[in-house]
Design a protein around this nucleic acid. Structure first.
Lengths: 162, 162
DNA sequence: GTGTTATAGTTGCCCAGTCAAGTAAATTCT
DNA sequence: AGAATTTACTTGACTGGGCAACTATAACAC
């Protein structure tokens, strides 16, 4: 019953619990808010946002993937969805014919502008309003420092047993 | 009210960005670590953990769902997976025949014990080692306060701390 | 008792996103 | 130049999990 010494402390356990709760809950509620108000999935909204901020309102697929923290194939499918709605267009890159630039369309920009207030309010209600300035700063720094590989050991081979 | 009439401040934007990155990345890396080392999905690992901590090592499906922050149907499927591996068993509840208790089996407990060091190390490497004591405390509190509905939610959601 | 409503789970259907394999253009090697 | 390799996606197969509809039991009304 008791904690073993080589385990986590109570505080560490509490953090991991809080983290896994937030990880499940936050994206769901933000997405639900946006879907309800704007019929736009959160991922697609973010993709539009990143495009709107990009030079020439265009990004390569892999840049979309990076910004969304998803795989390239995931980004491909996201762009497919947006393209079907004509919120973005694919343009074969002049400089590199292997892949396409994803370009924000006028419709896409309008859609983004229309969705923005809703997402902003949602983010305030669900997240921002509940944090004071200090928490905001610490949280931002802390969240940015977790997750990524400490130092890449990708060449890990198969575990002992087969 | 703040002094920005329309958008978010730079800091607020940075937070939302950090949050959405962490939300994508953290579960993926923790899950990948555990799958690689223990062939056990993170969700299933957490389910086993909650069962091991429960009175009589048993929980109703809906309690599993609550702890995992997922829907009841999601929890049903998680339990199905675990049951197929014989890590848990369903037992029709004596007191309420509508549903089942999910009981941790001996095999399940062994599996959990075997997986625990791996998950602990993973959590340290990916998360805990990168935070100092103050960050840990602030982050825990902050993460616990975000997400849930502001309007109509039970104050039981705000966890007391000792 | 019978009928009605509420509750606990399960199941069918769907969607987003991952991985691995495939394709096509670009780059490097010889 | 042509072959080999690397890069930049795309696609097929699959998985996890959500929603809504359904089943079975329980509880309440009469």
């Amino acid at each position: 019953m008791a904690h073993h010494n080589n385990g986590m402390t109570r505080d560490e356990k509490a953090l991991m619990q809080a983290l896994s709760r937030a990880i499940s809950v936050v994206p769901r509620v933000l997405d639900a808010d946006l879907q309800r108000d704007q019929q736009l999935p959160l991922t697609d909204y973010f993709a539009l946002t990143y495009l709107s901020e990009a030079e020439g309102q265009r990004l390569r697929i892999n840049e979309v993937a990076t910004r969304l923290s998803m795989t390239i194939s995931g980004a491909t499918r996201t762009v497919n969805r947006l393209e079907a709605l004509e919120l973005v267009a694919r343009e074969r890159s002049a400089s590199d014919g292997r892949g396409a630039d994803v370009v924000l369309t006028d419709v896409g920009l309008k859609r983004l502008k229309a969705a923005w207030p809703s997402h902003r309010d949602s983010a305030r209600r669900r997240v921002l309003d509940r944090l004071d300035a200090n928490e905001l700063a610490v949280l931002t720094k802390a969240l940015n420092s977790i997750g990524a590989e400490p130092d890449d050991f990708d060449s890990t081979d198969c575990p002992p047993q087969s």
